[in-house]
Nucleic acid binder design. Structure first.
Lengths: 333, 333
DNA sequence: CTGTTAGCGCCTTCAA
DNA sequence: TTGAAGGCGCTAACAG
């Protein structure tokens, strides 16, 4: 392939490179319409396409941001990313998405790769495993926004759910419907991942708010693979739970598998609710009652915040922004 | 932020830029270990990170490929993309994924944007709406691979499912289980999208193979929003279908909604099967019988093919590669 | 209104 | 074994 450059266009149109450049960048306030037309024609005939790489090099700005998501398998993540892409699209900014797969090492690689690619800023759903890196970027005042998870040791702007409240509205709802032995299952708490920890805490607080006893056999945070076993234990007690809160969509999936295997009927045998909306919540039988996150708003806000930071490099006060969950009552309670 | 460049490293290490460059690119065959150490130290102290943008400009190669997917909502697409990313990751190539949202205009924008970013090649799940563009790239011998859909007018390497066979194994399975009034529903056939057209055709052929009559009321390809209505019509006949094949996961979702609404029992009232695996196929009640695509292999193959094209620019014979579906029998038939 | 000049950060001969 | 020079394609002053 030939690789048409601006010089070719300039030659063909009989003008200098800079004139073509101005044309490309819509700075034709002072350009004769005749010149304009000649350039336009030349571009078309040559099938010229500006080289963004070269442009980025001079402008020191790529008009691209990176998103590093801890685990893209969460429905929530995909929705947030979608919203980020939309917001960036309207701002004429490109987005590169990378999935860290819950692996801090992968996360680190992606962050370094994206920075080497000179992305103008980063939205991160942190795995929590690269504190030093987060800190370093923060110190450099590199444009950065966290989503979904707080990294205590840093001071980066973070947007996330009011997780305690999510548990609370679910417990409230279950209690209002007469359930008293409420269980809670979530994925591993090992790395102290914010939403998991906070949701569990919210569960505990809400129980006590309703003067319900906290039964240590009724809650657990374990690796996905062990959720089935854990539930087995929970439900084989003499006095098993009458309802179950799933801490996130992955836990929900495991819980559904378990309930099916044991032929436990929802809600007759156990009421079932979950935090995080899933694509099959309506078609599932029974339709699932959910505490849903405003994923779209969260993504949009994250994008806007980052874009603002990219534009105004002065370091603003960072803050933690919480969004409220919504209770969607369906048939599983 | 300072923006450390190679010059800074060179100065600090007391060598010239080109020496640093050689170090960075692992060409230290003839470099004194003392020089090496000095450079290494300088890099660390300065926290130097090579600028890929600048590198790409000189090398005329970004080590990045683009993926433009017609609609990322299909589970199949996400799986293929995952496989592409894996394959590229091991080849040290970056991947930028864009979702055309079934919109040819968006697709065109993304393709042009990615090319402006100088990606080394493109894997496209074509919407089918930009024939001229596809052709142009093909003519330029720009590295290109299509996935999932054939564009008749071009001659681009394409990897996709043996769609006729997918329908066939499903019909065979239904017939073997005594079903005779087999219906078929899929999303809009308007743009003659390969998998939809071929799967419908496979359905028709298979019926005739089994000497079953083709009832015109028993199949349809309509927009997602109208699938419910269409099914309503199908099932309100005096002699309604006893089984239903969904042409893809989106059609399946609509079908499930419909069946639930009408309180039709699966498989007692209707047997249900679908092409394309979905995340909830096992936990659904009853678990869904599916003709599944080897998404991982398809993605891997696509990536390898493209990478090969990127490396060996000589135009190779393009071809159409078909993968066979797998029947996963569960409880819905 | 248009052209000249000087880089952006890096890589690649070619000499030394 | 290392360095100097030139250039990748584009933009940004500054002249003219």
């Amino acid at each position: 392939m030939k690789a048409v450059t601006m010089a070719d266009v300039a030659k063909k149109a009989n003008v200098s490179k800079s004139t073509v450049s101005q044309y490309i960048n819509n700075r034709y306030q002072y350009m004769s319409s005749e010149t304009k037309e000649r350039i336009e024609l030349a571009i078309k005939e040559l099938n010229y396409r500006p080289n963004y790489i070269a442009r980025s090099l001079t402008r020191k700005k790529t008009s691209t941001i990176g998103v590093v998501v801890a685990n893209i398998l969460h429905t929530f993540s995909t929705q947030v990313i979608r919203a980020i892409e939309d917001a960036c699209h309207t701002a004429n900014v490109h987005v590169i998405v990378c999935n860290a797969d819950d692996n801090p090492k992968k996360e680190r690689n992606y962050i370094e790769m994206l920075r080497a690619k000179q992305v103008d800023g980063l939205i991160i759903f942190p795995t929590g495993g690269n504190i030093d890196l987060y800190k370093k970027m923060d110190k450099e005042a590199y444009p950065l926004v966290f989503v979904d998870r707080i990294v205590e040791e840093t001071n980066v702007s973070t947007i996330l759910l009011d997780n305690m409240k999510a548990s609370e509205i679910l417990v409230d709802h279950l209690v209002a419907n007469g359930y008293k032995r409420i269980a809670f299952i979530t994925s591993s708490l090992e790395r102290r991942i914010t939403p998991r920890v906070e949701r569990l805490e919210g569960y505990k607080k809400s129980l006590s708010k309703h003067s319900l006893p906290l039964n240590d056999c009724y809650y657990a945070g374990v690796k996905k693979e062990e959720i089935g076993n854990e539930l087995e234990k929970m439900f084989s007690h003499s006095n098993p739970p009458d309802s179950l809160i799933c801490g996130n969509d992955l836990a929900l999936l495991e819980a559904l598998k378990f309930l099916k295997e044991k032929e436990l009927q929802v809600p007759a045998d156990v009421a079932l609710v979950s935090i995080d909306e899933v694509p099959y919540s309506e078609i599932f039988d029974p339709a699932l009652t959910i505490a849903s996150q405003p994923a779209f708003e969260i993504g949009k806000h994250a994008a806007e915040l980052l874009l603002e930071k990219v534009t105004n490099k002065e370091k603003k006060a960072n803050k933690i922004i919480r969004y409220s969950p919504t209770l969607i009552v369906r048939k599983s309670t």
